[in-house]
Design a protein around this nucleic acid. Structure first.
Lengths: 385, 385
DNA sequence: GTGAAAGCGCTAACAG
DNA sequence: CTGTTAGCGCTTTCAC
């Protein structure tokens, strides 16, 4: 008999049952009389089969007569059994089906950046097809952040993906290794002994820089992503330009140098956000000897610079050229299209997903470096005479 | 003796051990000789205490002598034991420590919207403090979407939070109820018998509409969020304006009517994105008899309308007033500030988090309706003569 | 094709 | 304060 929903506990939390009356389970026959949810054993009993057979009926992983299977499924419906308890399954299988995704910054900041979002989207899509769930693990990269997140230490996960690693890799990777959780790094240091998925930052930036020198620019300033957890905002002294703690920042800066460009000035931002780009733009363009071109390490920063330029009454690209990195669609810049290095964001997430798959299969995935392409938009032009 | 890392399997996946040689565990003493990770029993044995004592040493949930505790911890370090296996703990406790967050749309689309991101941020912050992790469950709201996500059916979670429910609530809520997973709805229909966290959409929109009529506007058009999973883009016939499947759309539309405003025209967008707002703006402002004010159901849509107006050479607010809803910071509109209804996004997430907490404590949380405030910016002004 | 048995790794009574 | 005991709910050999 089906017990009317209204009579059952509204939201029965799955809690350990109180010790059973007398060693044995409740007498067979008769549905769940307590507010407890039924188990596979209950269903098996109701269907008159063994637990192992009932298990097969749900997993389909083994030979079972269609009729038996149906009998089990019917019993399940009658008992309001919604399928095997994932906790039992997970313990038995030794796998949680969970991939921990460490987002390298406060969510609020990370997800304001379409770059992270698109990568995450590609990742979730790939993992979803493998029946893997994504557990969000925030990991503040700010200075004075409170060590690693507790989730990292104790949440169930089969694999971890570290997004935008760079400055805090050491602690996070250490915790994961200690736990024996295989890890994929997205855009981290390639020297770590974990598989890394990344793009050709350096080559892309070099091509972009060359594009500007080809246009005759000689006074080129660079607006960078954060150098370190300190997240300074402002000009970077020549002495401090080497070896930013954040890997991407370093690689994209190196690309500029590869093209033979010695930056007119370098401006560090605390985060890849439009407003920080605007601040940078205002500062650089109102300096005594302003640059004729500004090379930004992200599109969001670049669009801030473009807005600042417009605000100052400067024409882009006639008075100043601006270029970014990422290849985002920036509707609010319309009708302008930002000159940028386009990186395949969703593919990056998908590649990370495939690395996860390989790790789960016990393989050691190779590092991946995805290619980037140069997109010449309307925001760069010949250097003003 | 500590076994050098290099000699151990690089990334030992936690897999069910092969059946032990002879009923008993491997002989006590001597570290883990196989590539298997040590268990609490191993640590207990090494420390010369019982498993339960060892458990206490880690959980701290019970009386234990400091010396014993230290001995256990030392043994753990020696064995490279990183703490209790979450899978075992979860099964035993009957709790996973996981909150499933169903994002009511493709991630890519959802997270391009700062609104979702800020709510999620508030939620994650609150749940993190409770030692709960967030499992992302994508739930495409598009027409012809592939039923409910498998994760919803079978992932381990103690509670679920449904973000932006509205059109697909029925299936999702049904699946969750069947599984006995308590659920919190953010911005869903208040008729569901689950706790709902929301804002005063309707009242806020009414105030905004009144602000416009006070300024003398009589031809007011409305740009709306999607009406249904079909996600049309274009004008909505008068006959079709009632009862959108999406609850928020309906409530915000009702607010306009509450203020006594009969929309000059209503334009439906497929998603809350700048580009859709721009499309709407172009269409409405180039129509034969354009509105003097455009009321948008989100700030992203409103900013698209502002951009379209500027593009058409119209001055905002002299030629046309534009208002939004959400109260976002939109740096690219600077120096303009959008007139908008400000909703407390992070608080909304936090409120959802508290509802989760209550549910886990076995309580039935009350519905929450957070207040909104009107922000008069620079994008609305007197109706043109 | 089906059933019996053996745990996965852990925690929480309860007894000492 | 510590040890004993009894499972949480499930999957997976292995016999039959």
């Amino acid at each position: 008999m089906r017990i009317p929903t209204i009579l059952r506990v509204r939201w029965p939390l799955r809690q350990p049952r109180p010790p059973r009356p007398a060693g044995r389970r409740r007498p067979t026959g008769g549905g769940p009389l307590s507010s407890q949810r039924p188990t596979l054993a209950d269903v098996a009993a109701a269907a008159g089969v063994s637990v192992s057979t009932a298990s097969l009926a749900f997993s389909g992983a083994g030979p079972i007569a269609a009729a038996t299977r149906q009998r089990v499924l019917d019993a399940a419906t009658a008992l309001d059994y919604a399928g095997p308890n994932p906790l039992g399954r997970q313990l038995r299988r030794g796998r949680s089906g969970i991939v921990g995704v460490v987002v390298g910054d406060a969510l609020r900041r990370s997800f304001r950046d379409p770059v992270s979002v698109q990568v995450l989207d590609g990742l979730v899509g790939t993992l979803g097809a493998l029946d893997l769930g994504v557990l969000l693990i925030p990991n503040s990269c700010d200075a004075g952040a409170p060590a690693v997140d507790p989730l990292l230490e104790s949440a169930a996960m089969d694999v971890a993906v570290l997004l935008w690693g760079g400055t805090t890799d050491a602690e996070v990777l250490g915790a994961l290794r200690r736990r024996g959780v295989p890890t994929v790094l997205v855009e981290g240091s390639r020297t770590a002994d974990v598989p890394v998925v990344g793009i050709d930052d350096r080559g892309g930036m070099a091509r972009l820089a060359r594009h500007l020198t080809d246009l005759g620019h000689r006074r080129i300033s660079v607006v960078t992503l954060p150098f370190s957890r300190e997240r300074h905002e402002g000009l970077v002294d020549e002495a401090d330009r080497h070896e930013p703690a954040w890997v991407i920042t370093g690689r994209r800066l190196a690309g500029v140098l590869d093209a033979g460009v010695v930056p007119h000035s370098v401006w560090e931002t605390p985060a890849s956000l439009v407003e920080h780009g605007a601040v940078a733009g205002r500062a650089l363009l109102t300096a005594p000897e302003p640059p004729t071109a500004i090379l930004c390490q992200s599109d969001l920063l670049a669009s801030g610079v473009v807005l600042a330029a417009r605000e100052l009454g400067l024409r882009v690209p006639q008075d100043v050229s601006v270029a970014g990195f990422d290849g985002l669609d920036l509707p609010w810049l319309a009708p302008d299209v930002l000159t940028s290095v386009v990186q395949p964001l969703a593919e990056k997430g998908a590649a990370a997903g495939h690395a996860v798959e390989a790790l789960l299969a016990g393989e050691q995935p190779a590092n991946v470096e995805l290619p980037v392409t140069l997109r010449i938009g309307t925001t760069t032009g010949p250097a003003p005479a």
